[in-house]
């Protein structure tokens, strides 16, 4: 029963966990930029160098397009949502919420949205009903994250 499309394989597992590690590096790099320059600069630089790096990788690897038909125009707007995130977190970080409150509430928003997105199959992605094990896993990971955020250290 492990070949159902919703059962993650080991390489999916490793890739997602590794991506989380990359995110930690991004927070460290971009946060250091923000310590020297403006918050706009700390988001503008990685988007600029990222655009160049992604273009270079596209030219080098030439990945095949999955579908011949052009995707709807709104699918190109994911970057706007990402850029808005940086501005919002920069704004709330400097209130009484501080960094830990900002991260914890952001985590809650992300988890609730992703559950809703799976259940409804939002934006044309496959629909997926979470099972009891998914909710248990989610509760454990959220609890562990909150303990690290609020009691695990200054960062």
């Amino acid at each position: 029963m492990n070949d159902t499309p919703d059962a993650p394989r080991l390489y999916h597992f490793a890739a997602a966990f590794g991506a989380g590690g990359l995110l930690s590096l991004m927070v460290l790099f971009n946060g250091t930029l923000a310590a020297y320059g403006s918050l706009f600069f700390a988001s503008w630089v990685p988007h600029l160098t990222g655009s160049v790096a992604a273009l270079a990788l596209l030219i080098w690897l030439r990945p095949r397009r999955a579908a011949a038909a052009r995707p709807p125009l709104w699918t190109y707007l994911g970057g706007v949502s990402g850029a808005l995130t940086v501005m919002l977190t920069s704004a709330t970080m400097n209130t009484a919420l501080a960094l830990s409150g900002t991260i914890a509430l952001g985590l809650a928003g992300q988890v609730l949205f992703s559950l809703f997105a799976d259940i409804r199959g939002l934006f044309g992605l496959p629909q997926k009903m979470p099972g009891p094990r998914d909710y248990l896993s989610l509760a454990l990971i959220t609890a562990g994250s909150l303990i690290i955020i609020f009691f695990g250290g200054a960062s």
């Binding site: 991506a19 985590l107 997926k128 959220t142």
Partner: peptide
């Protein structure tokens, strides 16, 4: 799926 992706990325982070 979105939830699994989010949870594993958060765990890794």
């Amino acid at each position: 799926g979105a939830a699994q992706t989010a949870m594993l990325i958060i765990a890794g982070q």
